[in-house]
Protein backbone atom coordinates (compact mmCIF):
# COMPACT_ATOMS: atom_id res chain seq x y z
CA UNK A 1 0.00 0.00 0.00
CA UNK A 2 2.75 2.43 0.99
CA UNK A 3 6.22 2.23 -0.46
CA UNK A 4 8.83 4.67 0.72
CA UNK A 5 12.15 4.15 -1.01
CA UNK A 6 15.51 5.74 -0.37
CA UNK A 7 14.10 8.96 1.08
CA UNK A 8 16.56 11.69 2.03
CA UNK A 9 15.73 15.12 3.41
CA UNK A 10 18.27 17.81 4.24
CA UNK A 11 17.22 21.09 5.83
CA UNK A 12 19.13 24.32 5.16
CA UNK A 13 21.53 22.62 2.78
CA UNK A 14 24.81 24.46 2.28
CA UNK A 15 24.49 26.59 5.43
CA UNK A 16 25.90 26.25 8.92
CA UNK A 17 22.52 24.96 10.03
CA UNK A 18 22.60 22.09 7.57
CA UNK A 19 20.70 19.17 9.03
CA UNK A 20 20.23 15.79 7.46
CA UNK A 21 16.83 14.85 8.85
CA UNK A 22 16.28 11.69 6.81
CA UNK A 23 18.98 9.56 5.31
CA UNK A 24 17.98 6.79 2.91
CA UNK A 25 14.75 5.67 4.55
CA UNK A 26 13.21 2.48 3.16
CA UNK A 27 9.79 1.36 4.32
CA UNK A 28 7.31 -0.96 2.72
CA UNK A 29 3.85 -1.35 4.17
CA UNK A 30 1.27 -3.87 3.02
CA UNK A 31 -2.41 -2.98 3.10
CA UNK A 32 -3.62 -3.21 6.68
CA UNK A 33 -0.16 -2.91 8.23
CA UNK A 34 -0.05 -0.90 11.44
CA UNK A 35 3.49 0.34 12.01
CA UNK A 36 4.48 2.10 15.21
CA UNK A 37 7.50 4.42 15.04
CA UNK A 38 9.72 5.24 18.00
CA UNK A 39 12.95 7.17 18.30
CA UNK A 40 14.56 10.00 20.19
CA UNK A 41 13.86 13.69 19.64
CA UNK A 42 15.07 14.88 16.27
CA UNK A 43 15.31 11.35 14.90
CA UNK A 44 13.28 12.39 11.86
CA UNK A 45 9.95 10.77 12.68
CA UNK A 46 7.83 13.85 11.97
CA UNK A 47 9.85 14.58 8.87
CA UNK A 48 9.05 11.11 7.57
CA UNK A 49 5.35 11.72 8.20
CA UNK A 50 5.58 15.05 6.40
CA UNK A 51 7.24 13.39 3.42
CA UNK A 52 4.45 10.81 3.22
CA UNK A 53 1.74 13.48 3.62
CA UNK A 54 3.29 15.72 0.98
CA UNK A 55 4.20 18.53 3.34
CA UNK A 56 7.88 18.14 2.49
CA UNK A 57 9.33 17.26 -0.89
CA UNK A 58 12.31 14.96 -0.23
CA UNK A 59 15.71 15.62 -1.82
CA UNK A 60 15.72 12.07 -3.09
CA UNK A 61 13.51 9.01 -3.09
CA UNK A 62 10.00 7.97 -4.01
CA UNK A 63 6.70 7.79 -2.20
CA UNK A 64 4.39 5.25 -3.78
CA UNK A 65 0.85 4.82 -2.52
CA UNK A 66 -1.31 2.05 -3.94
CA UNK A 67 1.17 1.60 -6.78
CA UNK A 68 1.06 5.30 -7.70
CA UNK A 69 4.09 7.59 -7.49
CA UNK A 70 2.87 10.57 -5.45
CA UNK A 71 6.08 12.31 -4.50
CA UNK A 72 5.22 15.36 -6.60
CA UNK A 73 1.53 15.42 -5.69
CA UNK A 74 0.86 18.47 -3.47
CA UNK A 75 -0.35 17.94 0.07
CA UNK A 76 -3.93 19.02 -0.55
CA UNK A 77 -4.32 16.49 -3.36
CA UNK A 78 -2.62 13.69 -1.51
CA UNK A 79 -4.79 14.23 1.53
CA UNK A 80 -7.74 12.88 -0.44
CA UNK A 81 -6.42 9.45 0.46
CA UNK A 82 -4.29 10.18 3.52
CA UNK A 83 -5.89 10.76 6.91
CA UNK A 84 -3.86 12.55 9.51
CA UNK A 85 -4.05 13.39 13.21
CA UNK A 86 -1.61 15.90 14.65
CA UNK A 87 -0.08 16.09 18.10
CA UNK A 88 -1.85 19.36 18.90
CA UNK A 89 -5.52 18.63 19.66
CA UNK A 90 -6.34 22.10 18.28
CA UNK A 91 -4.77 21.33 14.90
CA UNK A 92 -7.24 18.81 13.54
CA UNK A 93 -10.53 20.67 13.88
CA UNK A 94 -11.95 24.10 13.11
CA UNK A 95 -12.92 25.62 16.50
CA UNK A 96 -15.50 28.20 15.44
CA UNK A 97 -17.40 25.71 13.32
CA UNK A 98 -19.81 23.09 14.62
CA UNK A 99 -19.18 19.38 15.07
CA UNK A 100 -21.42 18.54 12.13
CA UNK A 101 -19.70 21.12 9.92
CA UNK A 102 -16.30 19.72 10.82
CA UNK A 103 -17.47 16.22 10.00
CA UNK A 104 -18.97 17.45 6.72
CA UNK A 105 -15.62 18.91 5.73
CA UNK A 106 -13.91 15.63 6.48
CA UNK A 107 -16.61 13.78 4.57
CA UNK A 108 -15.77 15.82 1.46
CA UNK A 109 -12.14 14.75 1.70
CA UNK A 110 -12.19 12.26 -1.15
CA UNK A 111 -14.94 13.94 -3.18
CA UNK A 112 -15.19 17.08 -5.22
CA UNK A 113 -16.55 19.91 -3.10
CA UNK A 114 -19.73 21.23 -4.67
CA UNK A 115 -22.23 24.03 -4.19
CA UNK A 116 -24.58 21.86 -2.20
CA UNK A 117 -25.37 21.95 1.49
CA UNK A 118 -22.51 20.36 3.41
CA UNK A 119 -24.73 19.33 6.30
CA UNK A 120 -27.89 17.54 5.25
CA UNK A 121 -30.45 15.54 7.20
CA UNK A 122 -29.09 12.31 5.79
CA UNK A 123 -25.51 13.19 6.64
CA UNK A 124 -26.48 14.22 10.17
CA UNK A 125 -27.88 10.76 10.78
CA UNK A 126 -24.70 9.25 9.44
CA UNK A 127 -22.50 11.56 11.55
CA UNK A 128 -24.53 10.67 14.61
CA UNK A 129 -23.87 6.98 14.04
CA UNK A 130 -20.16 7.58 13.64
CA UNK A 131 -20.02 9.77 16.76
CA UNK A 132 -21.78 7.10 18.79
CA UNK A 133 -18.80 4.82 18.26
CA UNK A 134 -16.71 7.29 20.29
CA UNK A 135 -18.92 6.85 23.35
CA UNK A 136 -18.40 10.49 24.35
CA UNK A 137 -21.97 11.67 23.91
CA UNK A 138 -20.91 13.92 21.04
CA UNK A 139 -23.79 12.56 18.96
CA UNK A 140 -26.12 14.79 21.00
CA UNK A 141 -24.03 17.90 20.39
CA UNK A 142 -23.89 17.98 16.59
CA UNK A 143 -24.47 21.71 16.39
CA UNK A 144 -22.09 22.67 19.21
CA UNK A 145 -18.99 24.64 18.25
CA UNK A 146 -15.89 22.46 18.36
CA UNK A 147 -14.01 25.14 20.30
CA UNK A 148 -16.19 24.24 23.30
CA UNK A 149 -14.92 20.66 23.43
CA UNK A 150 -12.11 19.46 25.68
CA UNK A 151 -8.74 18.56 24.20
CA UNK A 152 -9.50 14.86 24.45
CA UNK A 153 -12.90 15.25 22.81
CA UNK A 154 -11.36 17.31 20.03
CA UNK A 155 -8.68 14.72 19.45
CA UNK A 156 -11.28 11.95 19.34
CA UNK A 157 -13.20 14.00 16.78
CA UNK A 158 -9.99 14.56 14.80
CA UNK A 159 -9.38 10.83 14.79
CA UNK A 160 -12.89 10.20 13.53
CA UNK A 161 -12.50 12.88 10.87
CA UNK A 162 -9.22 11.38 9.74
CA UNK A 163 -10.57 7.87 9.44
CA UNK A 164 -14.26 7.69 8.59
CA UNK A 165 -13.75 8.05 4.85
CA UNK A 166 -11.43 5.02 4.95
CA UNK A 167 -8.28 6.69 3.61
CA UNK A 168 -5.54 4.52 2.10
CA UNK A 169 -3.07 5.68 4.72
CA UNK A 170 -3.53 6.94 8.27
CA UNK A 171 -0.75 9.08 9.78
CA UNK A 172 -0.66 9.63 13.54
CA UNK A 173 2.11 11.84 14.91
CA UNK A 174 2.21 11.60 18.71
CA UNK A 175 -1.51 12.17 18.68
CA UNK A 176 -1.91 11.26 22.33
CA UNK A 177 1.15 13.13 23.63
CA UNK A 178 -0.62 16.38 24.53
CA UNK A 179 -3.39 14.71 26.53
CA UNK A 180 -3.55 13.77 30.19
CA UNK A 181 -3.03 10.04 30.89
CA UNK A 182 -6.68 9.02 31.07
CA UNK A 183 -7.60 10.86 27.87
CA UNK A 184 -4.49 9.53 26.16
CA UNK A 185 -5.64 6.07 27.17
CA UNK A 186 -9.06 6.77 25.66
CA UNK A 187 -7.61 7.97 22.35
CA UNK A 188 -5.22 5.02 22.26
CA UNK A 189 -8.02 2.53 22.63
CA UNK A 190 -10.15 4.38 20.07
CA UNK A 191 -7.23 4.29 17.67
CA UNK A 192 -6.80 0.59 18.19
CA UNK A 193 -10.50 0.01 17.59
CA UNK A 194 -10.80 2.20 14.50
CA UNK A 195 -7.72 0.78 12.84
CA UNK A 196 -8.76 -2.80 13.59
CA UNK A 197 -12.33 -2.35 12.39
CA UNK A 198 -11.46 -0.50 9.18
CA UNK A 199 -8.18 -2.30 8.54
CA UNK A 200 -6.43 1.02 7.84
CA UNK A 201 -2.80 1.06 6.78
CA UNK A 202 -1.39 3.08 9.64
CA UNK A 203 1.87 4.79 10.54
CA UNK A 204 1.94 5.95 14.15
CA UNK A 205 4.69 7.92 15.88
CA UNK A 206 4.83 7.67 19.65
CA UNK A 207 7.23 8.41 22.46
CA UNK A 208 5.49 5.91 24.64
CA UNK A 209 7.32 2.62 24.15
CA UNK A 210 4.63 0.59 25.83
CA UNK A 211 2.07 2.08 23.47
CA UNK A 212 4.34 1.28 20.53
CA UNK A 213 4.49 -2.33 21.68
CA UNK A 214 0.79 -2.66 22.46
CA UNK A 215 -0.45 -1.31 19.17
CA UNK A 216 0.16 -2.47 15.63
CA UNK A 217 1.74 -5.46 13.97
CA UNK A 218 5.09 -3.85 13.20
CA UNK A 219 7.51 -1.52 14.95
CA UNK A 220 10.39 0.57 13.70
CA UNK A 221 12.97 2.51 15.66
CA UNK A 222 14.51 5.59 14.11
CA UNK A 223 17.65 7.51 14.97
CA UNK A 224 19.56 10.25 13.19
CA UNK A 225 17.43 10.01 10.09
CA UNK A 226 17.69 6.25 9.71
CA UNK A 227 15.65 3.21 10.60
CA UNK A 228 17.95 1.37 12.97
CA UNK A 229 15.70 -1.42 14.17
CA UNK A 230 12.63 -3.20 12.96
CA UNK A 231 10.41 -5.91 14.42
CA UNK A 232 7.46 -7.57 12.73
CA UNK A 233 4.61 -9.86 13.72
CA UNK A 234 5.46 -12.43 16.37
CA UNK A 235 8.89 -10.97 16.91
CA UNK A 236 7.24 -7.70 17.91
CA UNK A 237 4.74 -9.52 20.14
CA UNK A 238 7.58 -10.85 22.24
CA UNK A 239 9.39 -7.52 22.63
CA UNK A 240 9.46 -5.61 25.92
CA UNK A 241 10.40 -2.03 26.70
CA UNK A 242 13.63 -3.34 28.19
CA UNK A 243 14.47 -5.15 24.95
CA UNK A 244 13.95 -1.96 23.00
CA UNK A 245 16.25 0.05 25.23
CA UNK A 246 18.90 -2.63 25.07
CA UNK A 247 18.54 -2.83 21.32
CA UNK A 248 19.06 0.91 21.03
CA UNK A 249 22.15 0.77 23.21
CA UNK A 250 23.59 -2.15 21.29
CA UNK A 251 23.16 -0.45 17.90
CA UNK A 252 24.12 3.09 18.84
CA UNK A 253 26.40 2.33 21.73
CA UNK A 254 24.74 5.03 23.81
CA UNK A 255 21.86 5.46 26.21
CA UNK A 256 18.44 6.16 24.78
CA UNK A 257 18.36 9.85 25.49
CA UNK A 258 14.68 10.28 25.96
CA UNK A 259 13.50 10.03 29.55
CA UNK A 260 9.92 10.33 28.47
CA UNK A 261 10.28 7.08 26.57
CA UNK A 262 11.56 5.19 29.57
CA UNK A 263 8.91 6.50 31.90
CA UNK A 264 6.16 5.94 29.36
Amino acid sequence: MLNVTNISVTFNEGTLDEKKALNGIELEMAAGDFVTVIGSNGAGKSTLMNVVSGNILPDAGDVIIGGKQVVHLPEYKRSAFIGRVFQDPMAGTAPSMTIEENLAMAYSRDKKRRLKFGVTKKRKDMFRDYLKTLNLGLEDRLSAKVGLLSGGERQALSLLMATFTNPNILLLDEHTAALDPSRAELITSLTEKVVRESGLTTLMVTHNMQQALDLGNRLIMMDKGQIIFEANGEEKERLTVKDLLQEFQRIRGEQFEDDRAVLG
Binding site: Y76, S79, A80, M90, G92, T93, A94, M105
Partner: peptide, 14 residues
Protein backbone atom coordinates in the same frame (compact mmCIF):
# COMPACT_ATOMS: atom_id res chain seq x y z
CA UNK B 1 -12.20 26.69 7.56
CA UNK B 2 -9.44 28.66 5.83
CA UNK B 3 -10.08 31.48 8.26
CA UNK B 4 -10.46 29.11 11.17
CA UNK B 5 -7.83 26.40 10.71
CA UNK B 6 -6.02 26.49 7.42
CA UNK B 7 -3.74 23.59 8.14
CA UNK B 8 -6.67 21.35 8.92
CA UNK B 9 -8.64 22.08 5.80
CA UNK B 10 -5.54 21.48 3.69
CA UNK B 11 -5.16 18.11 5.36
CA UNK B 12 -8.78 17.49 4.34
CA UNK B 13 -7.87 17.87 0.70
CA UNK B 14 -9.02 21.41 -0.01
Amino acid sequence: AIGDNKRMIRSLSA
